[in-house]
Deep mutational scan, measured.
Amino acid sequence: NQASVVANQLIPINTALTLVMMRSEVVTPVGIPAEDIPRLVGMQVNRAVPLGTTLMPDMVKGYA
Protein backbone atom coordinates (compact mmCIF):
# COMPACT_ATOMS: atom_id res chain seq x y z
CA ASN A 1 0.00 0.00 0.00
CA GLN A 2 1.16 3.48 -0.81
CA ALA A 3 1.92 5.89 2.00
CA SER A 4 0.36 9.35 1.97
CA VAL A 5 1.43 12.62 3.55
CA VAL A 6 -0.24 13.24 6.93
CA ALA A 7 -0.03 16.37 9.10
CA ASN A 8 2.25 15.79 12.09
CA GLN A 9 0.83 18.88 13.83
CA LEU A 10 -1.80 21.57 13.31
CA ILE A 11 -0.71 23.49 10.21
CA PRO A 12 -2.27 26.98 10.16
CA ILE A 13 -3.66 28.42 6.91
CA ASN A 14 -1.02 29.93 4.57
CA THR A 15 1.83 28.20 6.45
CA ALA A 16 4.80 27.07 4.36
CA LEU A 17 5.34 23.35 4.89
CA THR A 18 8.51 22.01 6.52
CA LEU A 19 9.68 18.42 6.96
CA VAL A 20 8.80 18.41 10.67
CA MET A 21 5.12 19.17 9.87
CA MET A 22 4.63 16.03 7.77
CA ARG A 23 4.84 12.28 8.15
CA SER A 24 4.05 9.36 5.88
CA GLU A 25 1.29 6.93 6.73
CA VAL A 26 -0.84 4.39 4.86
CA VAL A 27 -4.33 5.90 5.04
CA THR A 28 -7.69 5.77 3.28
CA PRO A 29 -8.51 7.71 1.24
CA VAL A 30 -5.06 8.09 -0.31
CA GLY A 31 -3.72 11.64 -0.34
CA ILE A 32 -0.53 13.21 -1.68
CA PRO A 33 2.05 10.41 -2.09
CA ALA A 34 4.75 10.33 0.60
CA GLU A 35 7.48 10.45 -2.05
CA ASP A 36 6.34 14.02 -2.82
CA ILE A 37 7.31 15.25 0.67
CA PRO A 38 10.57 16.88 -0.60
CA ARG A 39 8.53 18.72 -3.27
CA LEU A 40 6.03 19.97 -0.67
CA VAL A 41 8.66 21.71 1.49
CA GLY A 42 8.15 25.46 1.16
CA MET A 43 4.68 25.17 -0.40
CA GLN A 44 1.79 26.78 1.49
CA VAL A 45 -1.43 25.17 2.65
CA ASN A 46 -4.60 27.01 1.63
CA ARG A 47 -6.56 25.98 4.75
CA ALA A 48 -5.87 24.96 8.33
CA VAL A 49 -4.84 21.30 8.44
CA PRO A 50 -5.52 19.56 11.79
CA LEU A 51 -3.11 17.05 13.30
CA GLY A 52 -3.50 13.64 11.69
CA THR A 53 -5.22 14.96 8.56
CA THR A 54 -4.19 13.48 5.21
CA LEU A 55 -2.91 16.19 2.87
CA MET A 56 -4.89 16.22 -0.38
CA PRO A 57 -3.64 17.88 -3.59
CA ASP A 58 -6.23 20.69 -3.32
CA MET A 59 -4.95 21.69 0.14
CA VAL A 60 -1.51 22.79 -1.07
CA LYS A 61 -1.08 25.90 -3.22
CA GLY A 62 0.65 25.11 -6.51
CA TYR A 63 0.70 21.35 -5.99
CA ALA A 64 -2.15 20.11 -8.17
Rank of each mutant, 00 (worst) to 15 (best):
N1W: 14
N1Y: 05
N1I: 14
N1C: 03
Q2D: 06
A3M: 06
S4L: 01
S4I: 02
S4D: 01
V5H: 00
V5C: 02
V5I: 14
V6D: 00
A7I: 10
N8Q: 07
N8W: 10
N8I: 05
Q9W: 07
Q9C: 02
Q9N: 11
L10M: 10
L10R: 12
L10Q: 08
L10W: 11
L10G: 14
L10P: 08
I11Y: 01
I11H: 00
I11K: 00
P12E: 13
P12D: 13
P12T: 10
P12C: 02
P12V: 13
I13R: 06
I13V: 10
I13P: 05
I13N: 08
N14R: 06
N14K: 04
N14E: 09
T15H: 05
T15P: 01
T15K: 05
A16G: 07
A16N: 04
A16W: 07
A16P: 11
A16R: 10
A16H: 11
L17H: 00
T18Y: 03
T18R: 04
T18V: 11
L19Q: 06
L19F: 07
V20P: 13
V20A: 12
V20K: 15
M21I: 07
M22S: 01
M22W: 02
M22F: 15
R23S: 14
R23H: 12
R23N: 09
R23A: 12
S24T: 07
S24D: 07
S24Q: 11
E25R: 08
E25C: 02
E25Q: 14
E25H: 10
E25W: 04
V26M: 03
V26T: 08
V26N: 10
V26A: 08
V26F: 02
V26R: 07
V27K: 13
V27L: 12
V27R: 09
V27F: 03
V27S: 04
T28N: 14
P29Q: 09
P29C: 02
V30A: 13
V30Q: 11
V30S: 14
V30M: 14
G31K: 02
G31I: 03
I32Y: 03
I32K: 00
I32M: 07
I32D: 00
P33C: 02
P33F: 13
P33R: 15
P33D: 06
A34Y: 14
A34S: 11
E35R: 15
D36N: 04
I37T: 10
I37A: 06
I37S: 14
P38E: 07
P38S: 04
R39M: 08
R39W: 06
R39E: 03
R39D: 03
R39A: 09
L40V: 11
L40K: 01
L40R: 00
L40T: 03
V41M: 08
V41Y: 06
V41N: 04
G42M: 14
M43P: 00
M43I: 10
Q44I: 08
Q44E: 08
Q44N: 05
Q44T: 10
Q44F: 09
Q44C: 02
V45N: 05
V45H: 00
V45K: 00
V45Y: 00
N46G: 07
N46L: 13
N46C: 01
N46D: 11
N46R: 13
R47D: 14
R47F: 10
R47L: 05
A48W: 09
A48N: 14
V49G: 01
V49F: 04
P50G: 11
P50S: 06
P50R: 14
L51G: 07
L51I: 08
L51K: 13
L51Q: 13
L51R: 09
G52A: 15
G52M: 12
G52Q: 14
G52R: 08
T53Y: 11
T53M: 08
T53D: 08
T53E: 15
T54E: 02
T54N: 03
T54K: 07
T54I: 13
T54F: 04
L55P: 00
L55H: 00
L55A: 01
M56R: 15
M56G: 12
M56T: 12
M56P: 01
P57F: 10
P57V: 11
P57E: 07
D58N: 07
D58G: 07
D58A: 11
M59C: 02
M59R: 04
M59K: 03
M59G: 07
V60G: 00
K61N: 11
K61S: 05
G62W: 04
G62N: 08
G62E: 15
G62A: 12
Y63F: 15
Y63A: 15
Y63K: 01
Y63T: 09
A64W: 03
